[in-house]
Amino acid sequence: MTHIRSHLTAAFAAAGIFMAVPAFAQSSNCQDAQKFLAERQGLIQQINKLGGDGKQKKIDPRAACGVFTKLVNNGETGVKWLTANKDWCQVPDQFAQSFTEDHKRAQNMKGQACTAAAKVAEMEKKAKQAQQQQQGGKGGGLLGGGGLTGTYSMPKGAL
C-alpha cells in the first residue's frame, strides 16, 4: 500500500510540476502588459508635449503623425495581447473596452495628423517650385541675377 502511495505522490508531484510550467509562462505573459502600457504612457506624454502641455501652441503635423503612428502600433500590440490574455490575466472588461476605444481614437487622430502632414509637405513642395519658377532658374539675386556669391576682402592698411 505504501508502494502505491509513493507512486501516486510521485505522479501528483510530476503533474503539479507540469501544470505549474504553463502557469509560470502565462504569468510572465501577464507581465508583458506592463511593457506596452509603459511605452504607451511615454507616447502619450510626447503627444502632450507636442501640444505645449495645455498652452495654445500649433502642433507640427509631421511630428504628430510620427508619434501617433507609434501609438497606433502600440495599441495594436495591446489589443492583440488583450484578446489573447484578458481572461487568463483577469483584466477587467471595462479596462479592455476603454483600451479598445482609445485605440480607435488614436487611429482616427493618426489619420488626421498624417493627412495634415502630407498636405504640409505638398504645400512646401509647391512653394519651392513657385519660387524656382519666379526666379527663372537664374538664382535669387535682387536684380534678377545670381545674387551675391563669393567673398569680398577689405582693403588692408590705413583708410
Rank of each mutant, 00 (worst) to 15 (best):
L37N: 04
N48V: 07
A63P: 06
D60I: 13
A64W: 02
V72D: 09
L43A: 06
L82A: 09
D60T: 14
T77R: 15
A96P: 11
A130T: 02
K86Q: 14
Q129I: 07
K110G: 01
D60V: 13
Q46A: 02
A116K: 07
Q94F: 07
K58H: 04
K119A: 12
Q131C: 12
A117V: 09
I44E: 06
K125S: 11
Q97A: 14
A38M: 08
A64R: 04
K86N: 09
Q90W: 04
K49N: 12
Q97W: 02
E124M: 13
K104C: 08
G54Q: 05
R105Y: 08
K57C: 03
K70I: 15
G54A: 03
L50Q: 07
E122F: 06
E39Y: 09
I44W: 01
K110W: 10
D32T: 11
A116D: 14
A116I: 08
M109V: 13
A117F: 12
R62V: 06
N48G: 02
K125T: 13
N85P: 02
L50W: 12
F99V: 02
G111K: 15
N85H: 12
F99L: 07
K110Y: 04
I59R: 03
T100C: 03
K35C: 02
N48K: 15
A96D: 14
G42S: 15
R40V: 10
G75C: 05
Q94H: 05
V79E: 08
K86E: 09
K57S: 06
D60S: 06
Q46M: 00
H103P: 03
L50F: 08
F36N: 03
C89D: 11
W81K: 05
F95Q: 10
D60G: 03
E76Q: 13
T100N: 04
P61C: 01
I59V: 13
F36P: 04
A63F: 00
F99K: 02
R105I: 12
N108K: 15
